[in-house]
Simulated scan of single mutants.
Amino acid sequence: MRRSAAAVCILGFIVVLSGAAQEDTQLDQQIKSIASAHHGQVALYAHNLRTGQTASLLPDEPVQTASVIKMGILLDAAEQIRARHVSLDERVMLTKANQVEGSGVLGQLTLPIALTFGDTLRLMVILSDNTATNMAIDRLGLSHINETLRAAGLRQTVLYKKVYVPATAPMPPDQPRFGLGKTTAREMDAIMERLATCHLALDNTAPLPADGKICGAILGMLRNQQDRDSLPRYLETLDTSESGSAIGNKTGALNQVRNDVAFLSSKAGPIVIAAFTWGNADQRWTGDNEAEQTLGKLAKAIVDRWSPQGLDAAGFPWENPLANAAAAKTASQ
């Protein structure tokens, strides 16, 4: 993702932009050691937004996204809300054609059902609802979603089609390999960073006054995402439905795939982790799945290295990531 050369001051810490990143080679070795014990393949990219440090393993390897591609749908939703092409409050209708199996609840409900577009996105994220995902794709447009990903500089991130629905257009030759979508750890990290830092302007212009609330709404969905068995596994053991989580994340899973991308509010500043596993020997759909444990170990190693004091849910203004920056600007005038 291309961004301006200057660092942007948000929330009282410095978000270090591309070009200033420094690879944490010691952490790289820890990640490599954890991954080598896993019975499958691992790709990872992590970014400490305060220091600019990065850690990685096969960060540019194209991988199956499974439901993690829903992050790309969220990015396009933010762009279209920003452009006033869609609204979180508008109504969308659930149709029989979009009711599909897999995760979520909408596929089991009785028609007709009308939802707000915002609630459709919430179900897509919080429950990874596949039917809600298809509703969102219909409203935004498959081609528009992919155009936004290209405009954001993401050359290896693609949403190929709707979930469990045959493609309606010719598919690229690599689609059978990746299924629903493909990405890389580095590119999925970039999507999460763009939402967490509220860098929505694809032309790198300054944020609009309403951007912070758009990002806040999306981060709220990610923060309430209910699958916490992967990256958050060993980091957060409290009931986050009552206390508020320090992590916003989106998972994706297939029989041989377990993925997770997360934004973490730590006591030492914000951290983004995008991690993917595939070719996994353990294909159990239980919380003891080896890949989910591996993802948890990777996240703990990263947080222990970059924020030994742990996480801090209150350390980030989830409802409006630009709020502190706006207040600082007003105070200086």
Rank of each mutant, 00 (worst) to 15 (best):
T131C: 04
M124Y: 01
V158D: 10
I145D: 04
T116Y: 06
D129Q: 10
D119Y: 05
G153L: 11
Q108R: 10
R122C: 07
D138V: 11
R150N: 14
T131E: 04
T120E: 00
N146S: 12
K161S: 13
V158N: 11
P166V: 03
A151M: 15
Y160S: 08
I126W: 00
A169T: 15
L127R: 05
A151P: 13
I113N: 00
L149R: 13
L106Y: 00
T133Y: 03
Q156S: 15
L142D: 04
H144V: 13
M124N: 00
Y160W: 14
L109I: 01
V163I: 15
T120Q: 00
T157V: 12
R150M: 12
L154Q: 06
R139Q: 07
G107D: 03
L111R: 00
Q108T: 13
T133D: 02
R155I: 11
M135G: 09
F117E: 01
T168S: 14
K162A: 04
A167Y: 04
T133S: 07
Q156H: 15
L123Q: 04
R139T: 04
A167R: 08
L140I: 03
P112Y: 01
L154H: 05
T148Q: 11
S128R: 02
A152S: 13
T131W: 01
Q108M: 09
N146R: 11
P112A: 03
L142V: 07
Y164F: 15
L140S: 03
V125N: 00
R122L: 04
L127W: 04
G118A: 10
A132Q: 08
A136H: 00
G107R: 03
V165G: 10
T168N: 07
R150L: 15
Q108C: 10
L154N: 03
T133E: 06
T148H: 09
G118E: 03
E147V: 06
N134Q: 12
A132N: 08
V158A: 08
A152K: 13
G141S: 06
H144M: 08
I137S: 09
L140P: 02
T133G: 11
N146L: 04
T131K: 00
Y164S: 15
A169W: 11
N134K: 04
L140G: 02
T148N: 09
T110V: 11
T120W: 00
L142S: 02
D138Q: 06
N130H: 08
Q156Y: 12
K162F: 06
R139G: 11
V165R: 14
E147N: 12
M124F: 04
H144I: 07
R155E: 12
T157G: 09
S128V: 07
L109V: 08
I137P: 13
M124S: 06
D119C: 09
V163W: 06
L127F: 11
T157I: 08
I113P: 00
P166G: 05
L127K: 06
A169C: 05
A151K: 15
L159M: 07
K162H: 10
A167S: 15
L106K: 00
Y160D: 11
I126Q: 01
T116R: 11
A169D: 10
L115D: 08
V163K: 07
I145E: 02
A152H: 03
I145G: 07
V125S: 03
T157C: 06
L149V: 13
F117Y: 12
